[in-house]
Structures are given as structure tokens and as C-alpha cells.
């Protein structure tokens, strides 16, 4: 399915909320997945995989000092991504232990680098990413970028200003994003949990209009 970045953002946002994350984090998830697609990564598929997987076996960082680890299992990429965005500039560098779907966490930092004009470098086994305003440079295998789990994730703010020469052009600039319909439907299943079913009373009261109005 060919879609706009806005559609991807809204779909991811609602799916994260539908899966039980608080609205503020869901909003940021929407932006992170949007950033991933704008830069040619399959963020929607990663989010669908993560939300359809065993979310409960992972968690937020136990503390924001030392190497970040979940209380048990792997780090949750959404809560970790948001926390990395919160801390990366003041900490300069952060290292985590095992993390689920590291690409999703990278989306949060990519968006942060774009907005704050930082150069943020990320690395996990088999994948390297340098994010800055306007895009990202990558190195590694597709399998590594789309891994369901990484043993560690290292990120840091680069001191040297980033050069945007040779940046991979942001996909949405002149084209459109493709999301497989199956992925779209999987996200939609979560998103639907944020909707309230209509009743006849809410239909009439909800928008405030009568049934027909032909004037």
C-alpha cells in the first residue's frame, strides 16, 4: 500500500496506544516510525512485529546510569527509545544491554537528531547508523537492522558537525512510502483498541448533526 508519512505516523501512534502505552509515548512512537520511513527503513513492520510479540517480557531501563538494562528480559525499544532521546544530549553516550527491535529505538534518536540538529551515532551488532538533520547514513546488513533483538546498543553524540553530503535522500521527499497491506492491518488491529464503538445515541449526539440536512 502506498501511503503518506502522516498516515504512517498516525497508524503507529494509535497502534502503540492501543497496545497499552501512554499517549505521550505513543505520540513519540508515531514520530519515530515516521522518521524511519522517511529515511527508507521499514519502521511500520518493526512496530507490528514488536507489538505482536511478547511485549510483557521486556521493560523500561531499570536505571539511567551505567549500562541500561531491563529488570528482566530485553529492553522495550519504545520506552528505551524515548529515554535515550531524553538523555543522549546530556549524557553524550549511552550503552544498553539486550534490546528488542533496536531499529525502533533508533527512530526516536533519528527524530531527535533531525529536530535538534545533532549528529547521533548508533551501533548494534551488524548495524551502524549516523543520524543528523535531513537524514541518515547507514552501514550493515538488512538482517541486522531488522533484528528482533540485539545483544547491545551503543549511541553517542558526535562532536564534529555532520555533513549532509551524500546523505540518503529522505524517501518521502519525492516519493511515497510503501507499507505491505498485511503490516498495515496488523497495526490497525492494535489501533482499533483506541476507538469507541458507536451507539445510536452517540451517532446523534456525537457530531451534533441530525440525520439529513439538505438546505
Amino acid at each position: 500500500m502506498i501511503c503518506s508519512l502522516n498516515q504512517i505516523e498516525q497508524s503507529a501512534r494509535k497502534a502503540a496506544r492501543g497496545a497499552g502505552f501512554a499517549w505521550g509515548l505513543a505520540d513519540e512512537t508515531g514520530r519515530a516510525v515516521r522518521w524511519l520511513h522517511a529515511n527508507g527503513f521499514r519502521g511500520a513492520a518493526a512496530l507490528a512485529d514488536w507489538l505482536d510479540g511478547d511485549i510483557k517480557s521486556s521493560g523500561a531501563p531499570r536505571s539511567l546510569g551505567g549500562v541500561w538494562r531491563a529488570p528482566r528480559g530485553a529492553l522495550d525499544p519504545l520506552r528505551t527509545g524515548a529515554a535515550l532521546g531524553d538523555c543522549i544530549e546530556s549524557a553524550g553516550a549511552v550503552e544498553t544491554g539486550a534490546i528488542a527491535h533496536p531499529l525502533l529505538a533508533a527512530g526516536f534518536l533519528g527524530d531527535a537528531a533531525h529536530i535538534d540538529e545533532l549528529v547521533i551515532e548508533l551501533q548494534w551488532p551488524g548495524a551502524r547508523l549516523q543520524c543528523m538533520r535531513g537524514g541518515a547514513r547507514r552501514g550493515g546488513t538488512r538482517a541486522a537492522f531488522e533484528a528482533a533483538r540485539a545483544a547491545h546498543l551503543k549511541c553517542s553524540v558526535a562532536r564534529a558537525p555532520g555533513t549532509s553530503a551524500g546523505l540518503r535522500r529522505r524517501a518521502a521527499r519525492f516519493g511515497e512510502c510503501r507499507v505491505p497491506r498485511a503490516v498495515w492491518l496488523r497495526l490497525d488491529r492494535h489501533a482499533r483498541r483506541t476507538y469507541v464503538e458507536a451507539s445510536e445515541a452517540s451517532r446523534l449526539a456525537g457530531a451534533g448533526a441530525g440525520l439529513h440536512d439538505n438546505d
Binding site: A22, W23, G24, L25, A60, S63, L64, A83
Partner: peptide, 10 residues
Amino acid sequence: LRAHPRHRHA
């Protein structure tokens, strides 16, 4: 925010 993620939007 780590302790109270529900307040992020606020």
C-alpha cells in the same frame, strides 16, 4: 519520566 511515563504528554 522514567518513573512516571504517563506524564510525558503533559
